[in-house]
């Protein structure tokens, strides 16, 4: 699904991003983060650490007060055509699928993104089929989102951005509210996608399962960056940033 980008360019390069909300509250204090192509990275952090604020910078919904962001070598700028391309490259899956799926049928919703890119007719239908097949939801294409289970809705939400053939897929709390089976099914789907992945979560076992590398964001700063197993093994580090492993979980690969 990745195309037209030289393979040496990182999918995502965030340099010294600072952001202050209009009320003066500083949410990001200079964030640096580089994600190589095809990498799967977990962005960990407690509530209020600035995770969602950072995510909204990646596709130019929020504009950094200082610093720069490039996606596949293309800088995020407030220019209309540039923003359209950036939003194609950065596929954000929001936490609540009911926020993402706003059209009356699954197929129409999946078609919304690629149609905004100018696709029509058979090309558009092919994109929709491809994206729905990737998340195993082809049979549900004509159903209404509110008639699907929560797990199915989250998978369709992933398809809505896959249909834009993103450079990087950004998932906000992908495992929240899923039952164990749906959680596992989503993990299987995400692992099979040939796309760079940035997963925002505080579900540490899920990060361990899916991502080799993790970064911890706390109080608007990246405070740790390394192999997921190392980070999760450092109990003191986790405790310092209000992160905890579920009691019986041990970060040792089978």
């Amino acid at each position: 699904m990745i195309q037209d980008v030289p393979s040496t360019t990182p999918s995502l390069d965030v340099r010294g991003v600072r952001y202050a909300y209009p009320d003066g509250h500083v949410a990001l204090h200079g964030v640096d983060l580089t994600v190589a192509r095809g990498e799967r990275v977990a962005l960990l952090g407690p509530n209020g650490a600035g995770k969602t604020t950072l995510v909204l910078h990646l596709n130019g919904i929020l504009t950094a007060t200082e610093g720069s962001i490039t996606v596949g070598g293309l800088a995020v700028e407030a220019d209309r055509a540039r923003l359209a391309e950036i939003r194609r490259r950065v596929g954000i899956v929001f936490q609540d699928p009911d926020d993402q799926l706003f059209l009356p049928t699954v197929a129409e919703d999946v078609a919304f993104g690629p149609a905004n890119l100018g696709l029509r007719g058979a090309d558009l239908a092919a994109r929709v089929d491809e994206a729905l097949a990737a998340v195993g939801m082809s049979a549900q294409r004509d159903r209404a989102p509110h008639h699907l289970s929560f797990g199915q809705r989250r998978r369709v939400a992933v398809a809505t951005v896959l249909a834009m053939r993103p450079e990087i897929l950004v998932l906000d709390e992908p495992s929240s509210n899923l039952d164990p089976a749906a959680r596992r099914e989503l993990a299987t789907i995400l692992r099979a996608l040939p796309v760079t992945l940035l997963m925002v979560t505080h579900d540490l076992p899920y990060a361990f399962e899916l991502c080799d590398r993790s970064v911890i964001l706390d109080a608007g700063r990246i405070v740790a960056d390394g192999p997921t197993a190392d980070l999760l093994g450092d109990e003191e580090l986790l405790a310092r940033h209000r992160l905890e492993l579920p009691y019986p979980f041990s970060p040792v690969r089978k």
Binding site: R80, A84, V90, F112, A115, N116
Partner: peptide, 15 residues
């Protein structure tokens, strides 16, 4: 916000 993230520009595409 989710619509903007998928390239919404103020007009619904005629799908």
């Amino acid at each position: 916000l989710a619509m903007l993230s998928r390239g919404y520009t103020g007009r619904m595409p005629a799908v």
